[in-house]
Every structure is written in structure tokens, then in C-alpha cells.
């Protein structure tokens, strides 16, 4: 473990709530979702039940149309189920009003998207502070916490850069910092490496693994089997149902792979750690 990672773990211990021996983070029972397209109704989810405990790292896989995206939207409180129940950290969110859901998204859930989804005109710091703004924190507190989150993902020197001035990997780090800044109970990552090359993908997975190692619960949606191999548990969706739910037998370590990258070509990059200091582009 590098110095930087030790720092990461020690420096932010308080920001991730201790979730041992607590109710499950995600508790889903018989969740269904039916989309109505004119006269016909299309069932996207047909009774999904799932429990995700605190500190788990779950990869959700499945072909397109399997319902994994719909399930992700429900987990993220972006949508409401047609039937069934969903408790997030002991709170029943499946019947909440849109405003209540907005608040749950704000405080309990962090999103990381494939396309980063940063605000183009805002700096890294402003992007990360966005959830805190809607949480009603003072400006000083917003900036303090956003700065810490960016330092955590190794972008302490890029606070005032706009997304267009950052590499894809750096943009995804900003997105991760934004997802972490409000101390969520659950991090939802939707194809977080879909737009990145394999090397940067491993870097991002290393950050997610490092965060998970400190107790953050992560649910990752991906269609790439080798990305899912970084998780501890793999769930396979097909036709709106879970067809397979198994532990990942040989979990890959992004940290070690980065180290191998570094040893193979020491001059190519200075970063083999979870949070490498990236070069200026």
C-alpha cells in the first residue's frame, strides 16, 4: 500500500459512515417496473429481490434489455417502481414523492456515469460542490468539503480546471469526488469505464476498490466481464430478473495491475498507485 493510499484511508475515515452490523444498505423485495408504450405495456423488471449489505462491492451485468438499467434507475431513486418495495439504509423509498426522492439522491446516493456528466461551464470545484449546494450548506462549507473530496481522488491541483481542460480519467475522478462529497451510503456507478481506455479504466477501478476497502458500498453496472471481476459479487440480469448471484471467485486487484503497468514501463507514467499524480495534459 502506497503512502498516498494510506493517506486516503486515514484522511477520510470520518467521511464514510461506519456501516458494520447495520441494516442492509439496499433491500429490495419483488420489485417490478412496467413501461407503458401506448396500448402495450412492456415489463422491464419482473419481481427482483436483492439485499446488498454494508461494504459490499456488487457488479450488475446483463445484456441490453435485461432490465439492469431500469434496476439501476430504481436503486438510484431516479424512478419509482410499479410495485414492490425498496428500503435504502432502512428507509422505505419506493413510495416517496419526487421531492423526497431528490433529497435521498442528494444525501444517500452518489452517481458516477459513463459520460462523466459534469457541468461544462463549471470548474472541478463547482462541479463537486453541486450536491452540497442543493443540500443547503454554506458556501464556505461547500468549498471546504469539495476541496477535500477532490484532494481525495488526487485532483487537489486541478480545483479550478474546467472539464474541457481535464483528461477523461480526470473528469471521471471529478465525478467520483462529486459522488462522494455528501457522504453517501451507496455509490452507483453506471459503466464508469465505458468511455476510458484500459489503462485509465484500471485507475478508476483502483479508486473504487480503495473506497470500497474503507467501507463504501458500491453497485457497479457494466457489460464488461473483466471490469465486473474487480467486484466481490456478481449479479446477472436477464429478461427483467436476476438469473445469477454469485461471489467473484478471483477478484482482480486494480492496485496490483497498476503496479505491473508501472514495472513494465517505468518511464511511461509516474502513477501506479490508486491515486496517481497525473501529468499536465
Amino acid at each position: 500500500m502506497s503512502d498516498r493510499e494510506v493517506q486516503l484511508v486515514q484522511g477520510n475515515e470520518q467521511s464514510i459512515p461506519v456501516t458494520q452490523r447495520r441494516p442492509p444498505i439496499v433491500l429490495v423485495r419483488n420489485l417490478t417496473k412496467v413501461y407503458r408504450l401506448g396500448e402495450t405495456s412492456v415489463p422491464a423488471l419482473r419481481g427482483v429481490s436483492l439485499t446488498v449489505g454494508a461494504g459490499e462491492f456488487v457488479a450488475i451485468m446483463g445484456p441490453s434489455g435485461s432490465g439492469k438499467t431500469t434496476f439501476m434507475n430504481l436503486l438510484g431513486c431516479l424512478d419509482r417502481p410499479t410495485s414492490g418495495d425498496y428500503w435504502l439504509v432502512g428507509r422505505k423509498v419506493s413510495q416517496m414523492t419526487p421531492d423526497e426522492l431528490a433529497d435521498v439522491r442528494n444525501r444517500r446516493i452518489g452517481f458516477v456515469f459513463q459520460g462523466f456528466h459534469l457541468l461544462a461551464r463549471s470548474t472541478a470545484l463547482q462541479n463537486v460542490a453541486l450536491p452540497l449546494m442543493y443540500a443547503g450548506l454554506s458556501r464556505a462549507e461547500q468549498e471546504r468539503r469539495a476541496r477535500r473530496a477532490l484532494e481525495l481522488v488526487g485532483l487537489g491541483s486541478r480545483l479550478h480546471h474546467r472539464p474541457s481542460q481535464l483528461s477523461g480519467g480526470q473528469q471521471q475522478r471529478v465525478a467520483i469526488a462529486r459522488a462522494l462529497v455528501n457522504n453517501p451510503a451507496l455509490l452507483l456507478a453506471d459503466e464508469p469505464t465505458g468511455n476510458l481506455d484500459s489503462r485509465t479504466s484500471i485507475e478508476i477501478m483502483a479508486i473504487l476498490q480503495a473506497l470500497n476497502a474503507r467501507g463504501l458500498t458500491i453497485v457497479l453496472v457494466t457489460h464488461e466481464a473483466d471490469i465486473a471481476a474487480y467486484a466481490h459479487r456478481r449479479i446477472l440480469f436477464r429478461d427483467g430478473q436476476i438469473v445469477c448471484d454469485e461471489p467473484v471467485t478471483a477478484t482482480r486487484s486494480a492496485q496490483e495491475e497498476l503496479l505491473q503497468f508501472y514495472q513494465a514501463s517505468p518511464t511511461s507514467s509516474d502513477g501506479y498507485r490508486a491515486l496517481p499524480a497525473e501529468k499536465e495534459r
Binding site: A102, L118, A135
Partner: peptide, 12 residues
């Protein structure tokens, strides 16, 4: 969409 995802309410 991004603002809503990170917690903006409709009135925000």
C-alpha cells in the same frame, strides 16, 4: 438531469 441526479428538487 445531472442537477436532479445530485439532489436538485423540481422547484430548485
Amino acid at each position: 438531469g445531472v442537477r436532479m441526479a445530485v439532489g436538485a428538487r423540481r422547484r430548485d
